[in-house]
Amino acid sequence: MFASSTHLKFWTFSGENEIKQLRAETSEKYLAKHASGLSEDERAQEFLTQSEERQLVRHFEYVLKEFCGKFQPPMPKCVVGTSLAFFKRFYVHNSVMDYHPRDIMLTCMYLSCKVEEFYVPIGQFVKNLKGDREKFADIILGFELLLMQKIHYHLTIHNSFRALEGLLIDLKTRYKDHCDAEKLRKIAEEFIDQSLGTDASLIFSPSQIALSALLASSSKEGINLDNYVTGTLLLGSSEDDLQKTIYQVKRIRYMIKNQEPLQRELIQIIQKKLEKCRNQENNPESEIYKRKMEEMIDEDDEIRTQKRAKLNEGRETDHELFGPLNPI
């Protein structure tokens, strides 16, 4: 139920401006912590700017989508949607410089497989990756809990795919004499795929995105669905609601149509820059990260040994109480 979900309550923002502002705050927070003594210019040189961060996130969203497409076993669409939603949510409140998008991307995929009930064991999961698979597995499992924490354990994602399915069923049932619904499916699904590359899922409700997809597809196919929308789908709703819905649909279609193209050539440079300014504490390959992990393990060990010592103490006093175990 989208209307009462955490999806709507916590992760649907009022518009691009609000998201932009939140991202700016996130970036500033990171800079304030790691680049406090530097001037504006130095900051711009050493650290990623907000637009560079954005470029990188969008690049990895693209990579994520591509990777999902090649994944074996083939993934259902909702897994892709969910992993992208996790990814987007994560980088609203976290900086790219804090957590490398490559690590988070894989973790998002792994987690969404679980959430969408398409469980792939970690061993099979990393078989899709080239390189040191054990290391990847460690990274994914290491970040999984952190990812869940950062998205506040709001794991239920309402994807647009099922909403589109519902609309198609509705079309076939209540508007069957006027159009062939199956003809609309392909382009509509492509539209939703495209919407995953934008912030649409952070701003609009999934059903609105699905409706936009349907309408975009119908206009390309030369089918007029206006009668369906006003006469069947939204029949009985107030004029105000109708206008708002239509307005939202227009915004979505505008947003998807005017997506900024990715600037591939910049990505290499940004990635190089990121290597220098990223938070080494969260880099699984850095010495600092390894040391931190070891410390954590040591701490665990310490707690365990303390517990053991306590237990032993208890046992010794027991002996005193009841005498030695072998009295003979």
Partner: peptide, 15 residues
Amino acid sequence: ALQDALGGLFYYPEL
């Protein structure tokens, strides 16, 4: 599927 398709259609940010 129908509930997913209909729910949230009237969503409009109040700002």
